[in-house]
Structures are given as structure tokens and as C-alpha cells.
Design a protein around this nucleic acid. Structure first.
Length: 414
RNA sequence: GGCGCAUUCGUCUAGUGGCCUAGGACACCGCCCUCUCACGGCGGCGGCACGGGUUCGAAUCCCGUAUGCGCCUCCA
């Protein structure tokens, strides 16, 4: 994987990285990370570290040290000089240009697209080394592929037109041409390529919204690749075991956030309570919610099945950690129900979900209200919202004192 | 403009000449479950871009058209 350090890791690049990683792990090969920083003017200082942190979060581990394209500037220059001597390159205004063949075609068998051919006549002589001495991407990249012993280049389809140029360079230096696989782009809902030029959709964005890395990986793997006609949920190991380039489709895929949300929910619901709590705590800490860990862990059984992203937790369960101020209009003249509930809950014994439920259901029956009708104002007074985890369990967790306080407060305000 | 790549339900996809009156998943709609919201169960809506070929037979092969995207930089 060879990102340029111009910003956060983009989700489209991550999908490409994932295919590289899955392929390498499946084949027992190596997955290499190279930072393509020959364009120093566009480089962003933090980017290199952020890219690595994002890959670590996703669990895409690379082999060996990270390499930097700029480190081979001298090696590239030496090769360019040799090509000039050999006559396959020439000087032009201080730069060095590669002489592309004029006749015939340059072709390769792309692992996802089949045979691709370019008439050489259309290939322009390419600048290898700029007049300031720095190699260009189209020179440095194939040379590094050679030096790093890259056997498979899996990259985005925007590189298709670069490939014949790079193949000719590799041939000119007498090296072996790697196998190329050009995967399609990931599109946004607007149908445009999801690139840095259009909305920024970085790994960090997903992380902050509370997506679970294994779910994101599963989802991304299915963007352009499938195992069969019905399998969608696959663990990391299953993905590695099953991934194959020949099942990668060549057409672009649109990123569907709703499906990601669904899949994230599936993953979160499958977690054990402890694992869920661990991941949730990590998320809350990362996003600046300094909430009591013991209480957070106690809420897990009643929220795990209800939310599909950790990002929903603060809104959904925040009432456990801070007071609520429900809009009086929401109660809409139903404060007598809230008042009656307060009186009931004041004497429930023991104060647990089972007995709380029995008491509140009896209250609803006495008021000749359906449970649905009767519980709504109580829920609003206690949680501040019409939507919440189970009422009885929430009340138990909140405790008698705090519950009664909120019920009284709601009545007072109304 | 040139070159290249792509085109199956709204979305992700299965499909490699007959198994397809095109299968699955997400989304959507309806019903059931139900203290809200979710989960779960059941059912439904919905597609081979278009036009020509080839063939006994085409979503699958060929050609063309359309549309989208990419590249054409001393960016990567």
C-alpha cells in the first residue's frame, strides 16, 4: 500500500489497503507500507503517523519497516542517468524524460480486469526526474516496486493509465514486471468517486462516530468482492481464508452507510457483555466522555441490543450520567400519571426491575390506560426522551432516590 | 478532444449459454412480537442501460449507441 501523506487515510484507500492485506495474508505473503512523499509541497506533517494509526485501529498490520519514497531519490537519479547513457531517456530542460516506444502496444493481464492494452503511440515521453532532481511518482513508484520485490500491485483504477508507462520503465531497467490488479473506486451517494476532492470520509471519521473496526473491515471487504451469493458476515479469519482477487468485480461500488450501520449493529450485538463494555469504554474515553466506568458497564445489558453504533450511546444512555430537563410540553397535561408513578415507586420493595414493572403495570391498570400510554410520560420524566432503554431496568439502575427526584421535578416544572 | 475502464433490484452483489418466470443482503412497505426504541419472525415491492447481431437457446459471446467514471501535470 502506497499512500501519499497528504491527509487522513481515506476510506477508499483503506478498501484498497484491505484488499492488499487480505490477499497478502491469504497467500502467506507480505503486506508492505510505503509512503509516497515525492511531492513535498503537498505533504502534511501529521499524515504519516495518522495513516499508521488508522491501519493499526483497523488491524491491518504491515510487514517490515515503513519505507519512504523520498529516501530513494539518489537511487532513482542514478537509474535515470543510466537510462540516459543507454539512450532510453534524454535530458529536457533540466529534467530527464523517458523515451516511450512509438509502435505496438503495451499490455498486461490485470487480475481483476483481464487483458488491458494501450497503443504505445498514445504514450507520451514521461518525466523521470524533475529539474530540481526529485523523481516523479511514475518513475519512483515502479522502481520501488522493483527494489522492494513487489510481486502484486493492487491499487485503484485511477492508475490504469499509468500502468503502461510504469511497465515500460520496468522493462527498460531489465526487471520483472509485477502482477497488477486495479480495483474500482468507491463512490459517494452522489455517484462521484469518493476521493479527497469530494467530502472527506476518513477512517478517523468512522472511528469517532463509534463504528466497530471489525464491522467496518467486513463491510469494506464486501465493496467489490464477495465470497458467494449469500454470505455477508465474515470474521477477519474467514475473510483472509476466503479472499481471492478473481472474485473482485471491476465496476465501482457506492458506499451505503445504512448497510454499514446494520452490519455494525450485528457485530455489536454479537459481542460478549464484557467485550462490549471494554470497547464502549474505549470509545467514550476517546470522545471525551469521562463517565463512571462501573455505571457504564451496568448499562450494557440494556443498551447493547438497542443501538448500532457507540456514537449513539451518549444520546441514548446519557441520562444515567447527567440530569435531564424534559420539555414540559412533552408531558402535555399528564403530570398526574408522573405523580402517581412517583408515589408507587416510593414504596416498591425491593427496588428492582421485576417489582418496578409490577407496580407500574398495576398503576396503568388502575388508571385504565394501556401500558404504552401510561409509561410514556414516566419515561419522559425519567430519561428526558420518548426513546430509551427498557423503563423498568433504567429506573432500577438509576436508583429510587434519583428516580423520585426526577419524577417530582417533572411535575414541578409542568 | 484523445485514450482507458465500467454498466444486473434504490444500494452491495450472485450469475461465466439452458439450473434464471434472475438468487441473497441492506433499505423501503405491511403484519406479528412489544413499555418506547431496537432485536427477532413472516410476507411484499423492486433489476439484466439501449439497439443490433451470433445461437435451437443470451443477464451471460460479438458490434454499436448512451451514460458514468478515470487519466492525459516537472501531482500522487
Amino acid at each position: 500500500m502506497a499512500p501519499s501523506p497528504t491527509g487522513f487515510l481515506h476510506i477508499g484507500n483503506v478498501r484498497t489497503a484491505l484488499f492488499n492485506w487480505l490477499f497478502a495474508r491469504h497467500e502467506g505473503g507480505e503486506f508492505k507500507l510505503r509512503i509516497e512523499n515525492t511531492d513535498t509541497s503537498r505533504e502534511v506533517a501529521e499524515a504519516t503517523e495518522q495513516i499508521q494509526e488508522s491501519l493499526r485501529w483497523l488491524g491491518l498490520d504491515w510487514d517490515g519497516d515503513v519505507t519512504f519514497q523520498l529516501d530513494r531519490i539518489d537511487d532513482c537519479a542514478a537509474v535515470a542517468r543510466r537510462l540516459v547513457e543507454e539512450g532510453t531517456a534524454y535530458e529536457d530542460d533540466g529534467a530527464i524524460r523517458f523515451r516511450m516506444p512509438d509502435e505496438g502496444v503495451t499490455a498486461w493481464d490485470d487480475a481483476v480486469r483481464g487483458r488491458v492494452e494501450f497503443p504505445n503511440q498514445k504514450l507520451e515521453d514521461l518525466v523521470l526526474v524533475r529539474s530540481d532532481g526529485r523523481p516523479t511518482y511514475n518513475f519512483a513508484s515502479p522502481m520501488e516496486d522493483v527494489w522492494d520485490g513487489i510481486t502484486h500491485v493492487i491499487r485503484g483504477e485511477d492508475h490504469i493509465s499509468n500502468t503502461p508507462k510504469q511497465i515500460n520503465i520496468i522493462r527498460a531497467v531489465g526487471a520483472e514486471v509485477p502482477l497488477y490488479a486495479h480495483v474500482s473506486h468507491v463512490l459517494g451517494a452522489d455517484g462521484k468517486s469518493l476521493s479527497k476532492r469530494h467530502g472527506s470520509v476518513t477512517v478517523d471519521d468512522f472511528r469517532h462516530q463509534g463504528y466497530y473496526a471489525p464491522a467496518l473491515v467486513n463491510f469494506l471487504a464486501l465493496l467489490g468482492w464477495s465470497y458467494d451469493d449469500k454470505t455477508t458476515i465474515m470474521s477477519r479469519d474467514e475473510l483472509v481464508e476466503r479472499f481471492a482477487l478473481d472474485r473482485v468485480v471491476p465496476s465501482p461500488a457506492t458506499f451505503d452507510y445504512q448497510k454499514l450501520d446494520w452490519m455494525n449493529g450485528v457485530y455489536l450485538r454479537r459481542l460478549s457483555g464484557d467485550d462490549y463494555a471494554d470497547a464502549l469504554m474505549r470509545y467514550l474515553r476517546e470522545t471525551g466522555h469521562d463517565w463512571d466506568e462501573h455505571l457504564v458497564r451496568e448499562t450494557v445489558p440494556i443498551v447493547q441490543e438497542k443501538i448500532e453504533r457507540f456514537g449513539q450511546y451518549p444520546d441514548f444512555a446519557g441520562f444515567f450520567f447527567h440530569d435531564v430537563h424534559p420539555d414540559p410540553a412533552l408531558l402535555d397535561g399528564r403530570e398526574q400519571i408522573v405523580e402517581a408513578a412517583r408515589d408507587e415507586l416510593a414504596r416498591v420493595e425491593p427496588f428492582d426491575a421485576e417489582h418496578i414493572e409490577a407496580a407500574l403495570r398495576a398503576l396503568a391498570a388502575r388508571l385504565e390506560l394501556s401500558p404504552r400510554k401510561a409509561f410514556e410520560p414516566i419515561r419522559i420524566a425519567v430519561t428526558g426522551s420518548k426513546i430509551s432503554p427498557g423503563l423498568f431496568e433504567s429506573v432500577e439502575l438509576l436508583g429510587r432516590e434519583e428516580t423520585l427526584r426526577r419524577l417530582s421535578a417533572a411535575v414541578a416544572v409542568a
